[in-house]
């Protein structure tokens, strides 16, 4: 974990084209939501319980599934997301967690969403969809960058999973029988 004192400056959170994430968080907001839990959820390397709740709600909206999905249907996705986050540098990982804290801590979540009661899972799909759309073009660059970056991250991890390929009519690579081999794992 990064030292809190490092957070005074403007920080940027980013993930590239293959997991794009970019964010400038206003340092002044950080202390308000640093109270959140830092430990990964059981069986996860990076994702914390409230990260999972947040992604459970936001992912169907970003992917455009039209309705929330049962938790059990999302588990492969959470695992793949967790894996992906494991490859990020520590500072970027920490910044991602901070922005999720910003979105989920009661006070800041209330300010951002207009709903102070309940967690994200109690929000209507349509409301979240509208909120997310507004954030993408928000004048506040933190929201714009965070929502665009989280969208990119979610979409990339979603479509990395073979179980989601039939829905986009992607047949998968050719000649797998001949060419997919046991890795050397040097």
């Amino acid at each position: 974990m990064m030292n809190k004192n490092n957070q005074g400056r403007r920080h940027f959170l980013k993930l590239g084209i293959i997991g794009s994430f970019t964010l400038a968080t206003a340092g002044t907001l950080i202390p308000f939501f640093s109270r959140q839990l830092a430990n990964p959820a059981p069986n996860y390397k990076v994702l914390r319980a409230h990260d999972i709740d947040f992604f459970h709600c936001i992912t169907p909206v970003i992917v455009g599934l039209g309705k929330y999905q049962p938790h059990s249907d999302m588990e492969t996705f959470f695992k793949a997301l967790d894996d992906k986050l494991g490859y990020l540098t520590d500072s970027i990982k920490h910044q991602l967690q901070q922005i999720i804290d910003l979105f989920t801590a009661p006070a800041t979540k209330g300010l951002l969403t207009g709903k102070f009661n309940g967690n994200w899972q109690t929000f209507d799909y349509e409301n979240v969809e509208q909120l997310w759309g507004n954030w993408q073009t928000s004048r506040w660059s933190v929201l714009q960058q965070a929502s665009s970056a989280i969208s990119q991250l979610v979409l990339i991890v979603w479509y990395s999973l073979a179980e989601h390929w039939p829905a986009i009519n992607y047949p998968g690579p050719l000649f797998t029988e001949q060419l997919v081999t046991r890795p050397n794992n040097f």
Binding site: I17, I18, V63, G64, E129, S151, V154, L155, W165
Partner: peptide, 23 residues
């Protein structure tokens, strides 16, 4: 799929409709 979605900005229904027509 991953590179295509990485190059395609946006989210939600419109994005989904485009991805469904990936071929």
């Amino acid at each position: 799929p991953m590179l295509a979605t990485g190059l395609l900005k946006g989210f939600g229904q419109q994005h989904r409709q485009l991805m469904q027509q990936l071929p």
